[in-house]
Write a protein that binds this DNA or RNA. Structure first.
Lengths: 338, 338
DNA sequence: ATTCCGTCTTGAATCGATTCATTCAAGAAT
DNA sequence: ATTCTTGAATGAATCGATTCAAGACGGAAT
């Protein structure tokens, strides 16, 4: 029966007949301890079932081994993929990642930042929702830097990792035109979301360049159900007024459109082609696989975590950098007739 | 400019001209402090930008305010939903949830349990992967209890929250029979997974009761791609030897079947009906909405967290309880012709 | 024999908040 | 006038690991 709750460092030291300093060295700088003491200490640790108290460690040493990550929605596969990438990098640095969910709620966002400060995390990865930039600056001045994820830093105060949504929008529309669309439409909203705004602008510019009009169906959100409704609306238009292709601001919306068109007997892509954005797993797993604009999600997380560690170990004169990935088209059956 | 990095409790006390004890009381028992001192302290906290050091707090008080949660796969929506439920309960108890991902890797699982022990979390929610029960017992004896999630505790050593997969399997098969199937099949594997085993057994028993045979397509995993392959295989069978309905062990598999059938020109549900398991969001969002067996995911997380808190504040003589939810059928178009 | 040097080891001081036995103040009761 | 009572406030001791200046040891060099 391996001892009751809580053997501590001094107990280990006593059992191994060495000083506490030596035990600490075995834990943190094992190569500086002679072989026989090291084995004695390890045996004692084993026998007592000693587990070091992280609170005490970080109180004294003044540094934790953890990062905070705050995302808009853990249920969104995009964010879990980004988190996975970040976690891998954190693990390489022997740090752990505390994943929290602001759930698009400014109050929760603040509460979790409080928590991160109290825990003295080494740094924060965040997809900001509310007005938090000032606070993040203050935190950085106090020694907790952050990196903005999936959002271009508007100031040069932070590092950020994001995706070029304008280019993505352009790519999507050019693809639709290249498969023969002469009456494309954009479905998405609200335009207060920077991503939506950018994707639309990229598409609109590309449409102008290609000399085609771009019809706009603005939506109050980006959910599946909304896509279904807009799909019903489009399906009921006169065939000659109906768009021959749709660029949806994200895949949820696109899947909604797809379901609606299938239910209304519109053939995809013959009657109407669809391209989405994000390339979530289910885009390729739909009955009619969905063409989509793909973002390097894990890479985004990895890069963001790397930047964060660079700032944590900041050489004096660390320069904030803005990493922008260009998303790529993945063409599938929803735009390519077989 | 609100002070450099790190004002501490004594600084606050000095500025507010009170003792450290009083500041601590303002933080932890504000109602025991007179109005004017309380306001003075709060003002000082504000002015200095004081943030309490959680390491010091928990070192001295001997307890953290956090739970650890270890899931098999953060990318799986099932687990993020469960986590969400648990997080809500944790929040009610003013605890935070540290979400970690064993990614079905026994090494990572152990590493995260190490971490949780070091952090002195108050308790652990876990979907076990490797052989960890003994270790969990040891942890419990040392004061860190755990609750098993999505897995029935085989001993009475733990609380657990799970789903009755046998009943779910029976429900699925009965439904297929009720919509006219006389040649149903089960697709899934490996049978070393308890869930798969149980779902199959439930279905097989129900088939026997209904007096129909149950064909079996065993798979080495439960992924989408696997479903597509089995779908191709089934699609190539002679119509008279082909199953007229399929029960897939999970929705990923079912969606793969669906895509394959669509590509091969089989009509769902006319030629072949499909029912899945889990009722993930995308089940309802498929072009042909998928019938599925639904588990109360958030509720599972909530209940598990509640049980954990009960054990944490254990009255002497806490009895471990096994909560088993019965999953429900959600019938959609993949089994119901319109 | 003595000095020097590098390698190990030691243990008291320390990190910052909480605890709790003690002190204080002020009004009530005797 | 004195004693009690009650609620507030105090501050030294404490949690457990790390740090680091100082000491011990053993072998090489003089």
């Amino acid at each position: 029966m391996p001892s009751g709750p809580g053997a501590k460092l001094t107990d280990v030291a006593a059992l191994a007949r060495v000083s506490v300093g030596t035990v600490s060295n075995v834990l943190n700088r094992p190569d500086q301890v002679s072989f026989d003491k090291r084995t004695r200490v390890l045996a004692a640790i084993e026998e007592l079932g000693f587990v070091r108290n992280e609170s005490a460690r970080s109180l004294r040493s003044g540094s934790t081994r953890s990062l905070g990550m705050l995302v808009l929605d853990v249920r969104n596969p995009f964010f879990t993929d980004v988190a996975l990438g970040a976690e891998n990098v954190a693990e390489d640095h022997k740090h752990s990642l505390i994943l929290a969910n602001s759930a698009e709620d400014a109050g929760r966002e603040q509460a979790y930042l409080d928590l991160f400060e109290q825990q003295r995390v080494q740094g924060v990865l965040i997809t900001p929702f509310g007005q938090v930039l000032q606070r993040l600056e203050r935190m950085r001045d106090r020694g907790i830097p952050s990196v903005l994820v999936d959002r271009l830093a508007s100031t040069d105060q932070f590092c950020s990792v994001s995706v070029d949504d304008v280019a993505g929008g352009a790519t999507a529309l050019e693809h639709l035109v290249s498969v023969g669309s002469v009456r494309p439409a954009f479905v998405g909203g609200p335009f207060t979301l920077q991503q939506v705004e950018d994707r639309y602008r990229g598409a609109a510019d590309a449409a102008t360049r290609a000399g085609v009009p771009l019809q706009l169906f603005e939506t109050p959100d980006l959910k599946f159900e909304r896509g279904r409704r807009i799909g019903d609306l489009i399906g009921n238009l006169q065939p000659d007024k109906r768009p021959d292709a749709v660029f949806a601001a994200n895949d949820q919306l696109a899947l909604g459109l797809l379901q609606s068109f299938a239910a209304n007997g519109l053939r995809v892509p013959e009657d109407i082609a669809i391209v989405g954005f994000d390339d979530i797993d289910f885009a390729s797993q739909s009955s009619i696989p969905l063409s989509s604009i793909s973002q390097p999600r894990q890479l985004i997380g990895e890069r963001a975590a790397q930047l964060l560690f660079e700032e944590i170990d900041a050489e004096p004169g660390h320069v904030h950098s803005q990493v922008v990935f260009t998303p790529e088209l993945v063409a599938r059956q929803s735009t390519l007739r077989r």
